Simulated scan of single mutants.
Amino acid sequence: MTDIASRQSHSSTSLRQNGAIRVAALMTAIFLFALGCQTTYYTVWEKMGKEKRHLLKDNVEQVREEQAEASEQFATVVERIKAMYGFDGGELEDVYEKLSEDYRACEERADAVRDRIDKVERIAADLFKEWESEITVIENVKLKSKSRASLQDTRSRFARLQRSMARAESSMDPVLNNLRDYVLYLKHNLNSQAVSSLRKEVADIETEVSSLIQDMNRSIKEADAFVKTM
């Protein structure tokens, strides 16, 4: 029994150590990619059994998640703005503080979407470059032709995804600018009269956020379609 317990304890310790090593390798890979050391980044991942196509798929899935979370946050800030109507005095101050926090959260979500899209585009470019290079090594004419056709098809599908991501990304800036202006104006004029005077601006923001969410949803659908064919 003692031997069994000892082996179980050793096995548990080994699993924890392997998990810690994997996490450390993952963090190193992320850090290297952020520094622009893509070659080393890919090498680290390859040692963990993931090629560029796996990384592209994973990051497209994460773009989808980042966009969904950003959509929810932008919708939340609109609801917070609407909640300001009907409040006054100290209550209005409390709602404003929450609105300010929601706006900062929108900025963070938008930055996360931009960073993830940039990462997806860099991985895709590296994948396609590697794919092109490897096709030249294939001597079998039939296999070479099939591989090139597959590359062209993947590039075409990625181009559709890229266009939808770019549209969603560009839709964020005007919304964030208007939200920033709105929040700063309220900071300087926090009273019920100031809130009431901004009804048109609120309607414009709501329209822009609705359009942004539609763009995000289209991009999410393109991401779903792309992932299914990877």
Rank of each mutant, 00 (worst) to 15 (best):
151 L>F: 09
84 M>L: 13
75 A>R: 14
29 A>R: 06
46 E>I: 02
72 E>Q: 11
154 T>I: 05
147 S>G: 00
115 D>W: 03
32 L>E: 14
136 T>I: 11
130 E>D: 10
128 F>I: 00
84 M>T: 05
77 V>T: 15
57 K>T: 05
100 S>E: 15
77 V>R: 07
142 K>V: 14
31 F>N: 15
130 E>S: 09
62 Q>T: 11
161 L>W: 01
94 D>N: 13
77 V>C: 03
154 T>R: 01
163 R>N: 10
159 A>G: 08
59 N>R: 07
50 K>M: 13
103 Y>H: 08
45 W>Y: 10
92 L>K: 10
128 F>V: 08
98 K>G: 07
121 E>T: 02
135 I>Y: 00
70 A>V: 08
122 R>E: 13
152 Q>H: 13
29 A>S: 13
127 L>V: 05
31 F>R: 14
75 A>Y: 09
88 D>L: 08
45 W>G: 08
64 R>C: 02
142 K>Q: 15
33 F>L: 11
113 V>W: 09
37 C>P: 00
99 L>N: 07
89 G>N: 05
132 E>T: 12
59 N>I: 04
140 N>W: 02
154 T>S: 12
115 D>V: 01
131 W>M: 05
131 W>D: 00
86 G>K: 02
124 A>P: 08
115 D>G: 03
89 G>M: 06
142 K>P: 00
68 A>H: 06
116 R>I: 07
80 R>I: 00
103 Y>E: 06
47 K>W: 09
60 V>T: 06
160 R>G: 12
96 Y>E: 03
44 V>N: 00
95 V>D: 01
109 R>L: 03
81 I>Q: 09
154 T>D: 04
139 E>H: 08
81 I>H: 00
68 A>Q: 11
153 D>C: 09
141 V>G: 08
151 L>D: 06
31 F>P: 03
109 R>H: 11
118 D>L: 10
125 A>V: 09
34 A>H: 07
101 E>L: 14
132 E>L: 07
